[in-house]
């Protein structure tokens, strides 16, 4: 056990799995960096956000494959490699770029098993960067996980801390279906206790971050930390909050949410995706369907407004759900009558 960042945990998961299984390889743009630069023979980047640092030095260019800027070919090749028995980890540098290559994910990788039967197993991981908060602008800050989760055949995870990042990535690599692994760019430097050995955080298992009795807050990705920051302010108001991190959106741990809502009678979801057809609205819909009689107040979803992520820092700060909004919404639900 030692203190590691979210970034280090992701790298460590890949290293351990690549050591364990030679079929695992990594492919993407500038994942080593420095190829084709004269006599330079090192790692220039290890990924633009440093998420593949050290892999090329240990595993070499056979299994750490830098590519031209060609997302359709990268994702399609990874899908084809997975269908053919390899276990690719393909990096889609920013999730916003899914627009360039979605056919290969949506119509190909995600459907192979259904269309072809068991022979269509597709053990593919797509690691991709989500999230607002660093001024990256409208085409580098989105969180399209609700769109990913909408697709049958595609699994989706959204780690909120270093421990889960490592365990979920190991599970994703060992899983025999395509998994969208959504890394949040604002969390890369976050530190936490992380075991040194390999371990799995199972896909489809949520976690109770904090127990409480009055309201259930389900928070996704970066929103988990923001929800945690509300705890003391809510306690000052006499509100005992239970916070759940689903960790994986597809498959989704419905039971952990139902059990909690049966106890608290109130549900607030905090979700960074666009509000229309957001993952949060799906959670509230399932809860209304399954445990309606436990509810003491309407369910509520907090998301950004229905607009792209702005470049201006003051607008971006307003865009994201924050402590004030969560406290206000919780207060409203707890005092609803």
């Amino acid at each position: 056990m030692s203190i590691k960042t979210y970034r280090e945990s992701i790298i460590e998961a890949m290293v351990l799995e690549m050591r364990r299984d030679e079929k695992v390889f990594v492919i993407g743009e500038d994942i080593s960096g420095g190829r084709g630069c004269g006599d330079f023979d090192g790692e220039a980047a290890g990924g633009p956000m440093g998420l593949t640092q050290g892999l090329w030095a240990e595993f070499g260019a056979k299994r750490v494959i830098d590519t031209p800027i060609s997302e359709t070919a990268i994702m399609g090749a990874a899908a084809g490699a997975a269908l053919s028995g390899l276990r690719p980890i393909a990096e889609l540098m920013f999730s916003d770029f899914f627009g360039v290559c979605f056919d290969q994910i949506y119509n190909q990788a995600a459907k192979f098993r259904f269309m072809y039967g068991e022979q269509g197993a597709t053990p593919l991981v797509i690691r991709t960067m989500i999230g607002a908060g660093i001024g990256a602008g409208p085409q580098h800050s989105q969180s399209p996980y609700s769109i990913f989760a909408n697709i049958p055949g595609l699994k989706v995870v959204t780690p909120s801390n270093p421990y889960d990042a490592k365990g979920l990535l190991i599970s994703a690599i060992r899983d025999n279906d395509p998994v969208m692994f959504c890394e949040h760019k604002a969390l890369l430097g976050m530190e936490g206790e992380v075991p040194d050995e390999a371990y799995e955080v199972p896909l489809g298992k949520g976690r109770i971050i904090k127990e409480g009795n009055d309201i259930t807050i389900v928070a996704i990705g970066q929103m988990v930390g923001i929800a945690q920051n509300c705890t003391s302010r809510l306690e000052e108001k006499g509100i005992s909050v239970e916070i759940i991190d689903p960790r994986s959106l597809s498959p989704f741990d419905e039971e952990i949410v139902y059990d909690s809502v049966e106890k608290t009678g109130r549900l607030l979801v905090v979700d960074e995706s666009n509000p229309v057809c957001s993952f949060g609205s799906w959670i509230t819909s399932m809860v209304s369907d399954e445990v309606f009689s436990s509810l003491k107040a309407p369910t509520k979803v907090l998301t950004p407004p229905h607009c792209p992520v702005p470049a201006a820092p003051n607008l971006e700060a307003t865009y994201l759900p924050n402590v004030d909004r969560i406290v206000e919404a919780s207060d409203y639900l707890v005092n609803y009558s």
Binding site: G99, V100, G137, P138, Q139, H140
Partner: peptide, 24 residues
């Protein structure tokens, strides 16, 4: 101010926009 460096456009002079999606 909503676009920033990678999204400047000025249609008045026929500048249809910078673009942060490479090749788009």
């Amino acid at each position: 101010g909503k676009g920033g460096s990678m999204h400047i456009a000025d249609l008045s002079v026929g500048m249809l926009g910078a673009n942060a999606i490479v090749g788009a």
